[in-house]
Design a protein around this nucleic acid. Structure first.
Lengths: 221, 221
DNA sequence: TAGATTGTTAATCGATTAACAATC
DNA sequence: TAGATTGTTAATCGATTAACAATC
């Protein structure tokens, strides 16, 4: 199978943020939204939002904007979030627990239907109202529920073994929060979250800001 | 002050991952690393790694690679992680707790020196060995410790107020995990983590993969 | 009619990839 | 000498930005 290359990554990454704001506006009863409004909210230029929305295929009304409901629907459809996908989570440590407790996923087409851990102290307990199952039961339950998405929250050294187990069970997509690069079959897609990536960006911004300030001080401003 | 625009965002985001792997190799006693090795690990092309490393300014040895120690130092210097920056964390909920428990930050030039919450049940307790302070004490402690970085882990509706408070106290950089876009003074840098952004990317990949499979089935492959 | 916004086309900019001489 | 790798230059590709007619 050909290696996939996704384009418009920056646009796709912005979609959930539009969605979040739009749902909020929808609840407030706002019937129309313009790219200007969304751009203001996100601190970017309207043309960026216009292009992003363009790829969903929706059309708006010149001079007015987009119907809030339709725009929400268009973004959901584009992302494949119009039908809920069920997932299993492996590793109920602090990060895994945080994800289990996050109630925004319902807006993002995701439902974590089962959670697993190896720790006997956790097995059978409930975290944010969800039972933690024995990791040994994973193949059985994943097959039974026909799950296609797995979320890995185990420590880095265990992550590859868990990933192998998941793909053996028919999982086709992995959301990887472990700090390690996984080797997977070509027909399995993976998204690795590297929290430190954001920190790196922030650090570089801070460094640039500081040198800017120093430069201005030098110029007597 | 001019609005900052950081370039080479994708390269910067990859830096911590290089760093993580390099530190691992260093501990294993590997003296030299080539871009080929790093590329293999990260599932990308060597030229990408070569370009990324290039921006740190380090030079390697043709035919051999880079000295592991020197490369680690170069990446740390580039990111400003050669000196530890102290931060405060606001909001000791499940995500805040997970961050407090993450022990990888020491490698990333970050030390969370204080954590705050408003909840009296949490104040005075210890999470992952760190005392949780009353949010009311924030101005006092931030000033006392001279902190420049704040990490926001409070619910979205409180995030802007916390951000305002932080900037009032002299915080110059904010790492925002709340699901809201913050309005900040121009001299304060911000990095917002949108966890759902990664999920959006994964969903689109999964959709593309599925249509690829369908196409191949149609062609009888 | 005036102001706001969409949607498209073109221009610019930056990131990725390719190619290859120089070096170990 | 053969193989591997760096570092640089050029080519390609895609994303961002600008401009503007069409529409409400």
């Amino acid at each position: 199978m050909a290696v996939m290359k996704i384009q418009k990554t920056p646009s796709i990454r912005r979609m959930p943020t539009y969605l979040h704001k739009l749902v909020e506006m929808q609840m407030e009863g706002v019937p129309f939204v313009s790219t200007t409004q969304l751009a203001d909210y996100m601190n970017l230029e309207p043309i960026v939002v216009r292009k992003d929305i363009g790829i969903t295929g929706i059309s708006g009304q010149p001079g007015i904007g987009y119907k809030t409901d339709k725009l929400i629907a268009a973004i959901r459809r584009f992302l494949g979030w119009d039908s809920v996908i069920e997932a299993c989570l492996v590793g109920a440590g602090s990060l895994g627990s945080a994800l289990l407790g996050y109630d925004g996923f319902e807006n993002y087409g995701l439902k974590i239907s089962t959670a697993f851990d190896r720790d006997t102290a956790k097995i059978g307990s409930y975290i944010h109202g969800r039972e933690i199952f024995d990791y040994k039961q994973l193949p059985e339950l994943v097959a039974q529920l026909g799950l296609k998405l797995g979320i890995i929250c185990v420590p880095a050294p265990c992550a590859q073994a868990v990933a192998d187990q998941l793909t053996d069970c028919g999982i086709k997509a992995i959301w990887n929060f472990a700090n390690v690069s996984l080797k997977l079959p070509e027909d399995v897609v993976v998204q690795r979250e590297v929290i430190a990536g954001g920190l790196a960006l922030l650090s570089v911004k801070l460094g640039q800001q500081n040198s800017l300030i120093n430069a201005e001080e030098k110029n007597g401003n």
